[in-house]
Design a protein around this nucleic acid. Structure first.
Length: 275
DNA sequence: CACGAGACCTGTTCGC
DNA sequence: TGCGAACAGGTCTCGT
């Protein structure tokens, strides 16, 4: 589920606390309980359980869709994939049906990774770059400029939607924000990336930054039973709006499949090249 | 290199 | 009403 804005929202809540839980920065872990072994990517179960006790949280951040929890001398990294979520709760609470990893603190609170579909993964590594080094630029970083985007787009001959969702090309875009950004930029999702003109790249750059920023300002998007608290779903332009009028021109939104992913677009605002 | 299919998983919604 | 198909925020691997 979580794309960049949702992970950013979670990182901020863990760092600063929320109305239902305190910040975790400064807290010390006592132990780890793993309820679904495959959620732990690395290291081994034994090593993980041995290294967690005594580790103190020093900071919480994000890189792409990865949540980065800095500890004393290691990094705890979590990717929530499709259905993962993180909560900070009292140790008095019962374990929920899809809790996969429970990390207890020494003050009665615990950090829980819940993940219905079991796609999410957790790493404990000495150097976070072991994982982050393969990621593309951060879309909200100052080094990511319209010129950089244009240069990178034209270096490949890919369907633009799939390229934007490729985490080694750009870190953090998923199915929702990519559909929204392409609609805002009036670009057809199957357009070949090397055919994008400089002006289109500028519009796309602005659109990417805008949808991500709006997503963050609204605490991310909450759909179905996964992920609570966000409001950005109330501002979707085309995502999951099949048959509803385009907010710009009223043409019904169309759903196609691109790279096995449902893709939503306005056929009038985002005409296929050659029309 | 670029793409499609299949895998990994569970739960909800859709269509007949 | 019931039941199987389709679909869901993601990513990896394999075959062409």
């Amino acid at each position: 589920m979580p794309e960049l804005p949702e992970v950013e929202t979670i990182a901020r809540a863990l760092r600063q606390g929320s109305d239902i839980a305190p910040p975790i920065v400064g807290k010390v872990f006592t132990d780890a309980v793993i309820l679904w072994e495959r959620s732990l990517e690395t290291p081994s179960l034994e090593e993980f359980k041995a290294r967690i006790p005594g580790q103190k949280v020093s900071d919480v951040g994000r890189r792409g869709k990865f949540l980065h929890i800095r500890l004393n001398d290691v990094s705890l990294i979590i990717h929530m994939r499709m259905s993962g979520g993180i909560t900070v709760e009292s140790q008095e609470k019962n374990i929920a049906p899809h809790d996969r990893l429970v990390l207890n603190f020494d003050d009665g609170w615990r950090l829980v990774f819940n993940d219905t579909r079991k796609f999410g993964r957790v790493w404990l590594v000495d150097d976070p770059e072991e994982i982050f080094s393969k990621l593309g630029p951060e879309p909200l970083d100052a080094v990511f400029t319209p010129v950089v985007l244009h240069q990178r787009l034209t270096a490949y001959r890919r369907q633009i939607k799939l390229l934007l969702m490729d985490q080694s090309f750009l870190a953090g875009m998923g199915n929702i924000y990519t559909d929204e950004a392409l609609h805002l930029a009036c670009i057809y999702p199957l357009t070949r990336s090397d055919s994008i003109k400089e002006k289109q790249a500028q519009a796309l750059w602005r659109s990417i930054r805008q949808v991500l920023t709006d997503g963050i300002l609204n605490n991310g998007a909450s759909i179905d039973w996964v992920y609570r608290g966000g409001e950005f779903q109330n501002y979707f332009r085309v995502y999951q709006k099949t048959g509803e009028p385009c907010p710009v021109c009223k043409t019904p939104v169309v759903r196609i499949v691109v790279g096995q992913r449902g893709t939503h677009l306005c056929p009038t605002c985002q005409p296929a090249p050659g029309e």
